[in-house]
Design a protein around this nucleic acid. Structure first.
Lengths: 197, 197
DNA sequence: TTTTTGAGTAAGTGTTACTTACCTGCTTGA
DNA sequence: TCAAGCAGGTAAGTAACACTTACTCAAAAA
């Protein structure tokens, strides 16, 4: 049966950290419950005391990482004066978080999306909040004249989020370095000024 | 053992079409080999005559879909006069293919990326070719003055590919409609002209 | 006529995610 | 004060799954 207690017992923490460690080395499907339990020095059964199933464990680890991501970005954006700068900061901070926290990125960009169960999870709600934040910035920018009045806010959001994700996807998959500063200013320049001569 | 013959026997075709049908209904991991065999009216063992494992079946189905995708895009681009138009066509045709061929999209955007084995597959080579095509168009555009001379071609490619993927991701996942014309011209407008007032 | 070979089958097998029943010590309230 | 309840954790399963092995059959080659 599922656990009811609302504390955070050592076994639960050990399972999550062991799983995070393993996610840094290999993909979700090739990590076995036996392996998780072994690394956490608990029995397999305990995993199912704290997590509904293996996927639920994945989502909760993602959730935990997401909290830091969210907090950092919201804080930085709050201190920026203009919408243009806020968008620049969001691009930079997102890339920075993706690159610095590769376990988080691997899970969010590569592992969870293939299962519909994710979209009912709390972690997905955080994705939506992040996405909503960007939309609000864009809409404010259009209203106060920083952005062109005929810009489609929803499409612009898709362009920005897509660019961010695609920018670090290869680097996450193949474990390469990324010049975050160069990439984020490059993306911002294209989106803000366009590329047509 | 793996099959050696180079024909395309009925069993093999039945397995691939049955699997494609199933992929339209549910995600890869929840499709069982028994289910595939049952739908194809063959025995489970035959799957492993023609495919190394379940993932290999996935990659080969993707490959097959990709051939049509590639052919359509290359053909359309060849008939466009300018780089600007070629990029517009690539955006439109990609979105169209993603939306019209959802099995292909689900596999490419959601299912294969989580396993490193994919990046050794023939299907991934086609992704690279598609990506290379876009880069060449951009570089030509910069050289002949259609695009700004200081544009970073690699970053621009990431913005465009990211925007395309993100534009139809939600629609693929949640099985929604998409106004392809509106979306592709919207993306092109932002990328070409920028959004800053 | 015999041999080879590709297409396909039947019956496994080891692993894996997940379950069930249990133990153990700590708190708590009657 | 002590039994009851409960949270943390364990041990030993089990069903289902991906994948394997050893086989049959038919038709073309030799």
């Amino acid at each position: 049966m599922r656990h009811k207690g609302n504390t955070n017992p050592p076994g639960r923490i050990k399972i999550m950290t062991a799983f995070s460690r393993l996610m840094a080395q290999k993909d979700f499907h090739s990590i076995t419950t036996a392996e998780i339990a072994g690394n956490a020095a608990v029995t397999e059964g305990l995993i199912y005391k704290y997590f509904k199933d293996k996927k639920d464990l994945l989502y909760q680890v993602l959730n935990q990482h997401f909290l830091e991501f969210q907090a950092k970005i919201q804080d930085r954006i709050a201190h920026a004066p203009s919408c243009i700068e806020q968008i620049g900061i969001l691009i930079f901070s997102s890339l920075e978080s993706y690159i610095e926290n590769r376990v988080f990125s691997r899970i969010l960009l590569l592992e969870v999306r293939n299962s519909l169960a994710f979209f009912d999870s709390g972690a997905y709600e955080m994705v939506r909040e992040y996405s909503r934040t960007l939309l609000e910035i864009i809409e404010t920018g259009i209203r106060n004249g920083e952005l062109k009045p005929d810009v489609d806010a929803v499409i612009l959001r898709k362009v920005i989020l897509g660019a961010i994700e695609h920018a670090c996807l290869g680097e996450i998959i193949f474990d390469k370095e990324l010049d975050i500063e160069r990439m984020s200013t490059g993306i911002a320049k294209i989106v803000f000024n366009g590329v047509k001569a």
